[in-house]
Design a protein around this nucleic acid. Structure first.
Ligand code: ZN
Ligand code: ZN
Ligand code: ZN
Ligand code: ZN
Lengths: 128, 128
DNA sequence: ATGTTATTGCAACTTTGTTGCAATAACAAA
DNA sequence: TTTGTTATTGCAACAAAGTTGCAATAACAT
């Protein structure tokens, strides 16, 4: 349905994304805002922000949903076809600004794709 | 832990995969074998078969786990790094025998990746 | 200041999957 | 074939992530 009113709850959720360059899982948001917001509210705000093209979401390795800021998206079109990178060391997930080429497949019509890459992130790469 | 004993339950689960070229979700298996096997048993057999390199698993779009037969895997090494294709029309998922090149990413070490492609499958491609 | 309705919190529920434990079934050895 | 060991199973209860219905509250247009 999208966001209609500017509420305190909305600001609290948006603030978490403003302070953060990486993606945030719904679960993590619920933990962080535990004392201030009900989890139902959080799920609903996330859904609305995604509808509006402010956030995009995807599944991490464990099957829980993560959210990250969109860059060139709007209510009508989402352009978030980039891959995501999950660090096996620290658990952070971030958006990768790169194109992965999906080859044509005979007799099939590809409409979208999700790519989740695992490995060590920039911060964890150097450590030991 | 892997499979140790050849049981009736094991045969029932394996049979589902023998009759099927595509992947099967755990949920679908539980429905199909409802009258014969407890869901706990099914989850445990799937886990053992995956340990043994007989099946491999991955998450579908909705976040539920799917299983498919392995081809060149064993207890010690899994080679199932191929992408999976989920039909937006009929819901089937199958393994794609093709390589998708993940480019190198500066300052990160890539260890694995999951690719889920959506579109219309071979059967649904022709229909209207 | 008031009225409309979007938003919120709460409790209850759903779905997918896991755990502990006692009963049962495989199967190796006698 | 019988017996003993232990892997496997079913059941019930639990757990985590997310959803739904509904009444109370808060935004905000007038
Ligand atoms: Zn890291
Ligand atoms: Zn992203
Ligand atoms: Zn199809
Ligand atoms: Zn596969």
């Amino acid at each position: 349905m999208g966001i209609v009113r500017k509420t305190k709850s909305l600001e609290l959720v948006l603030n978490e994304f403003r302070c953060e360059k990486t993606a945030i899982s719904a679960i993590e948001l619920i933990k962080r805002l535990y004392s201030k917001l009900n989890k139902t509210t959080i799920y609903r705000i996330l859904e609305n922000l995604e509808d509006d093209g402010v956030l995009h979401s995807f599944l991490g390795q464990e099957g829980v949903r993560w959210y990250a800021m969109c860059h060139n998206c709007s209510k009508s079109k989402h352009n978030d076809l980039h891959p995501h990178f999950e660090c096996v060391n620290c658990g952070k997930i971030d958006c990768l600004n790169l194109e992965v080429n999906i080859p044509n497949i005979p007799n099939r019509k590809v409409s979208s794709s999700q790519i989740l890459i695992q490995g060590k992130c920039e911060e964890c790469y150097d450590l030991k």
